[in-house]
Simulated scan of single mutants.
Amino acid sequence: MNPDTAPLRHAWIAAHIPHQGTMCLLDSVLDWSPEFIRCEATSHTHPDNPLRAHGRLAAVCGIEYAAQAMAAHGAALQQPAQRPRVGYLASVRKLDLRVARLDDIAAPLRVEAHRISGSESNILYAFEVSAAGQLLLAGRAAVILDVPLSPVD
């Protein structure tokens, strides 16, 4: 990681991923390399978190935290003059949920994504979401890059 950019704060993240307002869930990028990113978030405790349903934030919503970390990873790796790439979460596999919900966890979330493999058009990540040293969820996610959108009839 370039020490001049550590950590990358919420404003940087919001400027580099598609999610805005309360949907931009990450507070900061703590560390990153070409194969890894570690982020922190406290939005799981916010009552206005847009992923809450019936006043609760289910643990499965941790997938969105991981997806935003992956998007931030792609943005951090881009050269400043490069056109931003659009990525779509194509699948999640081997999901291991260790808790039922995230909103009752007081500690900040640590969101990590490790690039397992990839090509010009897709990337496979392993991800983990933890808090205070406790693993909350983990899995693998496939991201497809620059998928052309077909017009809707």
Rank of each mutant, 00 (worst) to 15 (best):
residue 2 N to P: 06
residue 3 P to L: 15
residue 5 T to H: 13
residue 6 A to C: 12
residue 6 A to Q: 12
residue 7 P to D: 00
residue 8 L to A: 12
residue 8 L to M: 08
residue 10 H to A: 08
residue 11 A to T: 13
residue 11 A to I: 03
residue 13 I to N: 04
residue 13 I to V: 10
residue 14 A to F: 03
residue 16 H to A: 08
residue 16 H to T: 10
residue 17 I to M: 04
residue 18 P to T: 05
residue 18 P to M: 03
residue 19 H to M: 02
residue 22 T to K: 11
residue 24 C to M: 09
residue 24 C to Q: 13
residue 28 S to N: 03
residue 28 S to P: 01
residue 29 V to A: 06
residue 30 L to M: 12
residue 30 L to W: 00
residue 32 W to H: 15
residue 32 W to N: 08
residue 35 E to G: 15
residue 36 F to V: 00
residue 36 F to Q: 15
residue 37 I to L: 01
residue 37 I to W: 04
residue 37 I to G: 06
residue 41 A to G: 11
residue 41 A to Y: 00
residue 41 A to C: 06
residue 42 T to K: 10
residue 45 T to R: 15
residue 46 H to Q: 14
residue 47 P to D: 11
residue 47 P to F: 00
residue 50 P to H: 05
residue 51 L to G: 13
residue 51 L to V: 08
residue 52 R to E: 11
residue 52 R to H: 09
residue 52 R to Y: 10
residue 53 A to L: 14
residue 54 H to C: 11
residue 54 H to K: 10
residue 56 R to V: 12
residue 57 L to G: 02
residue 59 A to R: 07
residue 60 V to L: 15
residue 60 V to T: 14
residue 60 V to A: 14
residue 63 I to N: 05
residue 66 A to C: 14
residue 66 A to E: 10
residue 68 Q to K: 08
residue 71 A to L: 05
residue 71 A to E: 05
residue 72 A to N: 10
residue 74 G to C: 07
residue 77 L to S: 08
residue 77 L to N: 09
residue 78 Q to D: 10
residue 79 Q to D: 15
residue 83 R to G: 01
residue 84 P to Q: 06
residue 85 R to A: 11
residue 85 R to V: 09
residue 86 V to L: 14
residue 87 G to A: 12
residue 89 L to D: 01
residue 90 A to K: 01
residue 95 L to R: 08
residue 98 R to A: 12
residue 99 V to S: 03
residue 100 A to D: 15
residue 100 A to M: 09
residue 100 A to T: 13
residue 100 A to I: 01
residue 101 R to N: 07
residue 103 D to V: 06
residue 104 D to H: 06
residue 106 A to C: 02
residue 106 A to Q: 12
residue 109 L to N: 03
residue 110 R to K: 06
residue 110 R to L: 13
residue 111 V to H: 02
residue 111 V to C: 02
residue 112 E to K: 00
residue 113 A to R: 05
residue 115 R to C: 15
residue 117 S to F: 07
residue 117 S to G: 09
residue 117 S to C: 07
residue 119 S to Y: 09
residue 119 S to I: 00
residue 120 E to C: 01
residue 121 S to Y: 08
residue 122 N to A: 15
residue 122 N to R: 07
residue 123 I to V: 15
residue 124 L to A: 11
residue 124 L to N: 06
residue 128 E to V: 14
residue 129 V to Q: 03
residue 130 S to E: 11
residue 131 A to F: 11
residue 132 A to K: 00
residue 132 A to P: 06
residue 133 G to V: 12
residue 133 G to T: 05
residue 133 G to A: 01
residue 135 L to K: 11
residue 136 L to V: 02
residue 136 L to I: 02
residue 137 L to Y: 07
residue 137 L to F: 08
residue 137 L to M: 09
residue 138 A to I: 03
residue 138 A to T: 13
residue 139 G to S: 07
residue 140 R to S: 13
residue 142 A to L: 15
residue 143 V to R: 03
residue 145 L to A: 04
residue 146 D to M: 04
residue 146 D to L: 01
residue 147 V to D: 09
residue 148 P to D: 00
residue 148 P to R: 13
residue 148 P to I: 00
residue 149 L to M: 13
residue 149 L to T: 12
residue 149 L to C: 06
residue 150 S to C: 04
residue 151 P to M: 03
residue 151 P to Q: 05
residue 152 V to G: 00
